[in-house]
Write a protein that binds this DNA or RNA. Structure first.
Lengths: 108, 108
DNA sequence: CGCTCATATGAATAGCTTTTCATGCAACGA
DNA sequence: TCGTTGCATGAAAAGCTATTCATATGAGCG
């Protein structure tokens, strides 16, 4: 038992994504798997805080952790990486596709 | 006076969707425009509460309100209704596509 | 072993968001 | 104009979630 019996509704799942830190983690991982330390200085957040967020993402079944020596490697959970083209995340109830390009800014 | 200079990040925008009531409203509106009273008993939430959520959706630019006599008609904001096929919402930074069917449950 | 590095965990706190309750305001009909 | 219907708004109360701080755990090294 390790799934996420709590995040049954789509809104619950979206809440996982609706956080700057967690979304940044996922976007980083869409690129490739990374160690915690890498994420720490890539995102510039405190180790402990990141760890809490990673725990949430793990519990939500969005990422997988693999021990790698003293470090831990994180990667998108299989099935979540719904990459038809460009970057996308599949959370079951819906699929988020990010523009293949880059920046999120686009205030018309 | 300000629209939404704060919802600049994708996470901010996702927070708008990450709520059962608001998501339900949007899904209802994807179908067709509806009056507040219709939404009230479709979703079974209190009028005042729904009104607060509608205000947030309005401020986020996700829906538009049109007065219709004593009532008010709500509809998805143009541009948000990303109709590729099936149901989808475009919030700028990313696009959420819902399975064409309707049920969200599928925890295999 | 004893130590250090890399990460996780727990408890307390700070900051929001959602919900409720009471009230306000616009549109309509009599 | 009044009374009523339909919706919006504001403030206080509830409920959560994120952040911090201190400490724990697992791995590798000498």
């Amino acid at each position: 038992m390790k799934s996420a019996p709590d995040s049954s509704t789509c809104a619950e799942k979206l809440k996982m994504l609706a956080d700057t830190t967690r979304l940044a983690v996922l976007e980083s991982l869409m690129d490739k798997p990374r160690h915690v330390s890498e994420l720490v200085d890539l995102l510039g957040v405190e180790q402990s805080l990141l760890s809490h967020h990673l725990a949430l993402l793990r519990e939500a079944g969005l990422v997988d952790a693999l021990r790698d020596g003293k470090a831990v490697l994180y990667q998108l959970a299989p099935g979540v990486a719904a990459s038809t083209a460009g970057k996308a995340i599949d959370i079951g109830c819906c699929q988020l596709s990010f523009p293949t390009s880059k920046k999120t800014s686009k205030p018309r």
